[in-house]
Design a protein around this nucleic acid. Structure first.
Lengths: 190, 190
DNA sequence: ATAATTATCTATCGATCACTAGAAAAATTT
DNA sequence: AAATTTTTCTAGTGATCGATAGATAATTAT
């Protein structure tokens, strides 16, 4: 996971993987089938380990604003965690790749769309509950906060630290077009 | 340029390039030296053709807010221009690559930093002129709008259209912490 | 027209790509 | 302990990677 995270799908070779894991190619192929299968498995592992945890904690918040704040602060921390490669493994993964690897790019893009849709659903709930004006375009708002997450991933890869990203998050939250009600277990402001 | 733009540095092979250009490898090497040299030349061409034009038009605006609006609207259009590959060739390029291509990644990252610094300078001018409160953190604000640009590039690659990105831009502009004075040749609102 | 130069070709270089057949070793079962 | 199964290894597959030597064709200079 760390190799794919840091170098991407095309930038990581079978030799890199087997060297890092301490065995030879046949063992890798017996265990994972192919490089593509392994990458898909790694992405799923990453999602369970990082992304899903982040999203589930965020969705527990009682307001959509608090959900976004929770998610974005967690992203700011995780993208700059010194124990893992910088950035997000899906937010900015496989954006450009060779034609033969297009299926990989599409799969990662599909996961990004799912992340977006989770935001859209939560924002629509907020419109129903009255937290957001019904005139708000939930998809546009979700695209905006998703863009922030993707931009944060780029900047983390470029060397930004946690505080840099928190400053970006605070500015993004200032664009929130509804009441800024608190969630039930909000984090402290930075 | 189109091949590198669409498939990235690692995703584009010499065979891809020579086939598209209609000659053989020795011709390419006689003309450009190496794949790496060619890529650098392509990036410079891209900057002159797209990025610099966008930035110079934006910097002509008389207010920092109008500059940002000009730049972001131009990006929304350019990133989704059907005549060119989606997204930006530098904003989201070479984020993950093999160890041996790290120099390429660093060069593109350096260009991203220059783009950021141009924003920072303009925002500091805005603080001097009184357009922005002196309490504003220009670097943080520049990081925020740069993140938006990078996120827009990701979303353009994922299939977003111009209006999708304009909606993101409008939300980003709503976070502007100063007076929203108009530039001398502003574009119409969407 | 001939000579010199430039440009492009064919054919290939060694290295590395993802991947695998078949043998050897380790673990498990009887 | 012997037989079976599973795992991992050595050693290599053909394909493609970026890049090049040497021949040929096209252009330019004399």
């Amino acid at each position: 996971m760390e190799l794919f995270w840091r170098h991407g799908y095309e930038g990581t070779s079978i030799a890199d993987l087997t060297t890092a894991m301490g065995f030879t190619p046949p063992t890798l192929y017996a265990a994972f089938g192919s490089k593509e299968d392994l990458y898909r498995e790694v992405i799923q592992f990453f999602l369970l380990r990082s992304e899903r945890r982040r999203m589930e904690a965020a969705l527990e918040q009682s307001s959509a604003y608090a959900m976004l704040r929770s998610y974005l602060y967690a992203a700011a921390e995780n993208f700059t965690d010194p124990h893992t490669p910088a950035g997000c493994m899906v937010a900015t993964a496989a954006l450009q790749c060779a034609t033969e690897n297009q299926p990989i790019a599409q799969e990662v893009a599909r996961i990004r769309q799912q992340m977006l849709l989770a935001f859209v659903e939560r924002l629509n709930e907020a419109k129903t509950s009255g937290e957001l004006p019904t005139t708000i375009d939930a998809l546009a708002l979700a695209n905006f906060y998703t863009a922030i997450v993707q931009g944060m991933s780029v900047q983390a890869i470029d060397g930004a630290n946690t505080n840099d990203l928190i400053a970006v998050v605070d500015l993004a939250l200032s664009a929130w077009p509804g009441e800024k009600s608190e969630g039930k277990s909000q984090k402290s402001e930075a």
